[in-house]
């Protein structure tokens, strides 16, 4: 009797531990929205999302420039990271000798572990300078610099998830293709990669989520100019940078403060939708495989 009771008690406590993540997510949503929704009593949602001007001293809050910057930086990062990442994943799953794999895998894990602010420092000193001097631009602090640094940062995500899904393709598919006389490369390109496509898609979407939510690496290299960027060589200011840079100067309870939380809501919603879509793609691949 006593044993049953203490077991139930432990189960209860552990159960609370298990749902802790969910409790935190709810708290994040509650506090983000409690502060952020207040902003829409000053600015209506349409003006907030599409407004071109962000001027806290005039209490004008239009986030279009930040949203466009976030999108451009992310698109650039994906364009750079997907080919390199996918090819590296194929290399690891299909071509790599065991001994090479034993070097490449830990290296990729390490790349994922480097703190983002160090990527920012590297980007500022190396990539920004390269763009300014070698590509002869007026400023190196640009969307392009942000895209390059983000591409490097999301490579591990794209590689590891793509490799896993390439490895889950049944051996028989590949063997069948080889038996029909296809070369190894033809089997990779026509059979293996298409069979793993949902996992690869999931990895890319997850990469997009990582890129759009990244702060420290980007804020140091994009220039942070509150203007709608029109090219990859323009400076920009993504959502995350604005939150980081302006949180310190906004008085708690001011329209500016609420508007920063509203940017947080925007970012949170974008990333959550991407994560859920990625999860669905991943689940779809597993079911079929």
């Amino acid at each position: 009797m006593a044993r049953r009771l203490s077991e139930d008690m432990v189960k209860g406590i552990l159960g609370i531990c298990a749902i802790f993540s969910i409790i935190i997510i709810f708290l994040i949503i509650i506090f983000l929205f409690r502060e952020g929704l207040e902003a829409f009593s000053y600015t209506n949602v349409i003006d907030f999302v599409f407004g071109r001007e962000w001027n806290p001293s005039k209490e004008t809050f239009g986030a279009a420039a930040f949203i466009v910057s976030s999108l451009l930086v992310t698109v650039g990062a994906i364009v750079i990271a997907v080919p390199i990442g996918l090819l590296t994943a194929i290399f690891l799953a299909e071509l790599s000798p065991q001994r090479v794999r034993e070097i490449v895998k830990p290296a990729i894990e390490l790349l994922a572990g480097i703190p983002s602010v160090i990527f920012g420092l590297f980007g500022l000193i190396v990539i920004v300078k390269y763009i300014r001097i070698t590509l002869d631009q007026p400023t190196g602090e640009s969307i392009l610099a942000g895209s390059i640094i983000l591409a490097i940062m999301i490579l591990p995500t794209i590689i590891s998830i793509s490799e896993d899904s390439l490895r889950q393709v049944p051996r028989a598919y590949k063997e069948g293709s080889l038996a029909l006389g296809a070369t190894h490369w033809e089997s990779i390109a026509r059979i293996i990669v298409p069979s793993a496509s949902s996992g690869i898609m999931a990895s890319i979407i997850l990469g997009v989520g990582r890129a759009i939510g990244e702060t420290m690496a980007v804020v140091l290299v994009v220039g942070n100019v509150e203007k709608l960027p029109t090219s990859f060589f323009d400076s920009g200011e993504p959502l995350t940078s604005t939150i980081l840079l302006e949180m310190g100067e906004a008085a708690v309870g001011s329209p500016h403060y609420y508007s920063i939380f509203a940017l947080g809501i925007l970012l949170f919603l974008i990333v959550m939708v991407l994560n859920i879509v990625s999860n669905v793609w991943l689940g779809r691949g597993l079911k079929r495989g």
Binding site: I19, S21, L32, T215, T240, I243, V252, F261, G264, V271
Partner: peptide, 29 residues
């Protein structure tokens, strides 16, 4: 599955959002 989904979702929350949340919830509230 819901519990695992919760953990994965929390893992995907951008770090700057944690910063905002930490400020609003822990520092202030």
């Amino acid at each position: 599955r819901f519990i695992r989904f919760g953990a994965d979702t929390l893992n995907g929350v951008p770090s700057i959002i944690f910063g905002l949340f930490g400020f609003a919830f822990l520092v202030y509230y």
